[in-house]
Computed example of a mutant assay.
Amino acid sequence: MHQFWKTAVLCASLMGGVATAHAASTTPAQTPPPNGYQAFFDHLSTEPLRYAAISSRNGKRLLVGLHPSTEGHVAGELMLLDATMRPLLTADIEGTAPNLQSGQTGTCQLTTTLKEDSLHLNGPCSQDQISGGLTRTMHPSQLWSQVNSFISPDMSVSAVWLNRAGWNAAITPSPSP
């Protein structure tokens, strides 16, 4: 199973979607970004539109920060943390969205692309929340994988929900037991 798929399953599980149990426990940490996790987090924290969710089941945290890039488009970053606030994944995210900073609501289509997979979020969004269907597509490198993906595309779909109100809770470490 590819690392990103495991992470996508974790993201779906974290945000309330459907996931398989074995993937949630085996996701390895991604290589740190060139400027380090702290610098990545600091940049993510300065984004004007910040959304987050915490898994009630395992305490994992998903942080998303966005800013308008061009008319009708947004760009930003996402970071997945484990329950102890250790980074598991960092990635860029981009897509289309209404002018969220002005309070408009509408449909967002966001994509995170990594080496072998892409994660797509499509659904309603506003200044206060992003939600919708989460799907995964693979970027197969071998010819047989490409043919197999064409014949039987991955139809993984999960429901997700991120909100602005969850940001502070998601960046605050849980009290020790």
Rank of each mutant, 00 (worst) to 15 (best):
Gly95Asp: 03
Gly103Tyr: 14
His120Phe: 07
Thr70Pro: 10
Leu110Tyr: 04
Arg50Phe: 04
Thr46Met: 03
Val18Trp: 15
Gly36Thr: 01
Tyr51Glu: 01
Gly36Met: 05
His73Val: 04
Thr137Glu: 14
Ile54Lys: 07
His73Arg: 14
Glu77Ile: 00
Val160Glu: 02
Ala8Cys: 13
Val157Gly: 02
Ala12Gln: 09
Asn148Ala: 11
Gly132Tyr: 10
His43Ala: 04
Trp167Cys: 01
Leu119Ala: 06
Gly76Trp: 04
Ala12Val: 06
Leu114Arg: 09
Ser45Val: 00
Gly65Asn: 03
Leu44Cys: 00
Gln142Asn: 12
Gly123Leu: 13
Gly103Ile: 12
His2Met: 12
Leu143Gln: 12
Gly123His: 11
Ser45Met: 06
Thr105Asp: 08
Asp154Ala: 07
Asn168Ala: 12
Ala75Val: 00
Arg136Leu: 15
Val160Met: 14
Leu119Val: 11
Arg61Asp: 02
His73Leu: 07
Asp42Thr: 02
Ile171Phe: 07
Pro34His: 04
Pro48Glu: 09
Ser141Arg: 14
Gly133Glu: 12
Gln3Met: 15
Ala170Phe: 06
Arg136Glu: 12
Ala97Thr: 03
Leu119Trp: 12
Ile54Ser: 03
Cys11Phe: 04
Ile93His: 04
Ser131Asp: 06
Trp167Asn: 03
Ala170Ile: 01
Phe41Leu: 09
Glu47Phe: 06
Gln129Tyr: 15
Ala21Asn: 08
Ala97Phe: 08
Ala52Gly: 01
Ala12Tyr: 03
Pro87His: 05
Ile130Ala: 01
Thr90Cys: 03
Leu119Cys: 11
Asn58Thr: 02
Gln127Leu: 14
Val64Trp: 08
Ser45Ile: 01
His43Gln: 10
Pro87Val: 01
Val160Thr: 09
Pro140His: 06
Asn99Ile: 05
Phe4Asn: 13
Thr112Ser: 14
Ala23Glu: 08
Leu119Ser: 06
Met15Pro: 02
Leu119Gln: 07
His67Asn: 00
Thr105Met: 12
Thr107Ile: 13
Gln109Val: 07
Ala29Cys: 09
Pro175Gln: 10
Ser145Gln: 15
Glu71Leu: 15
Ala21Cys: 02
Gln127Asp: 05
Val147Ile: 15
Ser25Asp: 07
Phe4Asp: 14
Gly132Lys: 07
Pro153Gly: 05
Leu89Asn: 08
Gln129Asp: 09
Pro173Val: 00
Ala19Met: 13
Thr7Phe: 04
Gly59Ser: 01
Ala39Lys: 13
Ile171Cys: 02
Ala159His: 13
Leu110Thr: 00
Met155Asn: 10
Leu110Trp: 04
Thr20Arg: 14
Thr26Cys: 12
Leu44Val: 00
Leu66Cys: 01
